[in-house]
Measured scan of single mutants.
Amino acid sequence: TLFEALYDYEARTEDDLSFHKGEKFQILNSSEGDWWEVRSLTTGETGYIPSPYLAPV
């Protein structure tokens, strides 16, 4: 399942991933609570992002 960003987000740590509203992601790991490890389909980068900022496509 692909997810889309509902809002912009600016990374706060080196493990976070900055992204823009509308960017699409592949979920790599969603078992860590509200922070999911994802791969951006736009940039190819991986990192953690807050799951409340995402919605299924």
Rank of each mutant, 00 (worst) to 15 (best):
T43W: 01
T1Y: 11
S18Y: 03
N29A: 08
V38M: 04
D34G: 12
V57N: 04
L41S: 03
Q26E: 14
N29C: 09
I27V: 14
R12T: 14
G47K: 03
T43N: 06
G22R: 02
E45G: 08
Q26L: 14
H20W: 07
T46P: 01
G44A: 04
L54S: 03
W36D: 00
T42E: 15
D15M: 14
G47W: 03
S40K: 13
W36K: 02
I27H: 02
T46M: 08
R39N: 02
Q26G: 02
T42K: 13
P50D: 06
T43R: 03
Y7E: 09
E37Q: 13
T1W: 11
L54Q: 03
W35N: 07
V57Y: 05
I27G: 01
S51M: 09
K24G: 03
G33M: 10
A55V: 13
I27N: 01
E45W: 08
W35E: 05
E23P: 00
H20K: 15
H20A: 11
A11Y: 03
E45F: 10
D8A: 06
H20D: 05
G22V: 00
E4H: 07
N29R: 07
G33V: 10
I27M: 06
F3H: 06
F25E: 00
F3W: 15
R39V: 09
E10C: 13
P50A: 09
L2D: 04
S40I: 06
A11C: 06
A55Y: 09
E37V: 12
L54D: 03
Y9H: 07
Q26V: 14
L41V: 09
D16G: 15
E37F: 15
Y9R: 05
E37R: 10
G22L: 02
W36G: 00
G44I: 01
L2N: 04
W35Y: 11
F3T: 02
S30Q: 13
Y9T: 01
P56T: 06
W36T: 04
N29F: 06
P52D: 15
P56W: 04
G22T: 02
W36L: 07
K21W: 04
W35C: 11
S30C: 14
W36N: 01
A5W: 01
S40A: 07
D15C: 15
G33S: 12
E10W: 09
K21D: 01
T42G: 07
Y48T: 08
I27E: 01
T13C: 15
